[in-house]
Design a protein around this nucleic acid. Sequence first.
RNA 1: GCACUCAUAGCUCAGCUGGAUAGAGCAUCGGUUUGCGGUACCGAAGGUCACAGGUUCGAAUCCUGUUGGGUGUACCA
Length: 565
Amino acid sequence: MKLKLQINQVIKDAFIKANIEHKPMSVCESTKPEFGDYQFNGAMALSKKLGKKPREIATKIIENLNLSGVLIKAEIAGPGFINLWLNPLWIAIQCHNALSDDRLSVEVRKTPIKVVVDYSGPNMAKQMHVGHLRSTIIGDTLVNLFTFLGDEAIRQNHIGDWGTQFGMLIAYLEEIGEDGSVSLNDLEQFYKDAKGRFDADADFANRAREYVVKIQSGDAHCLQLWQKFIDISLGHCEEVYNKLDVKLTREDVKAESFYNDDLPNVVEKLQSKEMLQQSDGAQCVFLEGDEVPVIVQKSDGGYLYATTDLAALWYRANIVGAKRISYVVDARQSGHFKQIFRVAKEAGFVADDVMLEHIAFGTMMNKGGKPFKTRDGGTVKLIDLLDEAVIKAKETINDKESYSKEELEALAKVIGIGAVKYADLSINRESNYVFNWDKMLSFEGNTSLYMQYAYARIQSIFRRFDGEIKSDIIIGDRLEHRLSVMLLRFEDMLIRTALDAAPNQITTYLYDLVTLFMRFYEQNPILKDGVDEQTKMSRLALADLTAKTIKQGLDILGIQVVNKL
RNA sequence: GCACUCAUAGCUCAGCUGGAUAGAGCAUCGGUUUGCGGUACCGAAGGUCACAGGUUCGAAUCCUGUUGGGUGUACCA
């Protein structure tokens, strides 16, 4: 449910009744429990416009406030804050409704839009490394979120499968002469070996260059080799996606090569708009205020990264029909995206009402604050990192004997992969973050384990109870009240998260929610002796709604829960 | 050189469209229990929000400058 909207409506009514002519601002969550559930700060801002004292305006608003439905109490504080308390009876009904709804009362957007989310984007010439982690899981989370809110979110995996290096790679694959599946197990090594041949043997190097041209002109033999190479390499990626539990499939792949035939058109269209200028033999778009141009065609006639991206933008806006196109790519490329977005808009490749955004993220660092590398300075393979996460997760599991081998594996995967994802998603994506195993696999603080533990703990209540929740929710003490309000904030939080494309808002919310629940549960017994039936049922309902909210929140983050931990 | 970005507690991080005494976790010190999962909960201590100005009723948040770090800077992706 859209909680803020409900409260804003009450405020708005008061404005009308009080005859105050001004578009009311939105309420916001109170900074402290003593200040109520929500607060309205608009009186101060209105003071100057209306030529009245803030407290005077606030008084007038309060006098006209309906305190019999959503709200129950309002107070003026400080210079003119209006603190608002939600009506416990109303809250109780809303929680009850949420509990009886699969979607926890989160509405499906009435006017859904198409959103393209471009993420992961591995290079087929190499194995996925830690640098691909953030893009892959942030992108996947965003698609989950947009989809849950009712939009039509489309995954696009813009894999790097085109370019000069592939000539070398397929020439080497051909030379080895086997089916490739063995030597391609280690792409890094394969690349190194191919490069070694390329540097050492001039004939080989020439053949490699030739093959580049041949693939691009559609030579059947070379294309076949290339296809085989891509298949195997993509297979490696899928292994990672599978471990990571992200939903990318081959259907979502729209590779660089996909846009190959469009590249001349891009240049042509820019030409016809008279946006191109030749500089040092290259075709460039010079943007006003930018020092460096966007090069769309090299002096040798070849096309570049920017050309492909422009073709992709055109495709996504005009063929797919996206109204929002989101690129989940490393922050270092912000200059590149700023440029191609401008070119695309100025050239009319995408309409004005299409939102183009670069969802930039920072780098993963080691404890020393340097980019995350292996001991010998190489890049860390993503698959190794994930395997290690599962191994470390296994160590955190108590009484391993009570599980079968399969159960233990499954549990370790849920914990380990969840920890890696949660640790990453809980950080404000724009900042760099320090990778730390101990922290992410801790039960304390804002971690996946704390959430999963809370969920499992609630499930254990229901194992003991094993009945049906009957009767209504009654909001008793302050903690119950706060917990309920927090539960009702779920949709507001999701909408805000989607708007900002900032998954850490979900983790922050879940952490606040779980913390509140733990406190509530500490003070308010549920199944202990002496709890009357009605109270028991009410608290069970709140526990149930809490668990469902945790599960739904983690599900959007692509993290699983377990009933026993 | 220019552009972008960041700077919050000892450490790791929150802080949403400017709002009240800047919040968590870890680490430190102390407390709660014959416990519905203590892998929990409560409390104490810890801050000149890099620095200096400005905008205003009000600034960690917006603007300018300074310092320090990161990144990007024409035919790689």
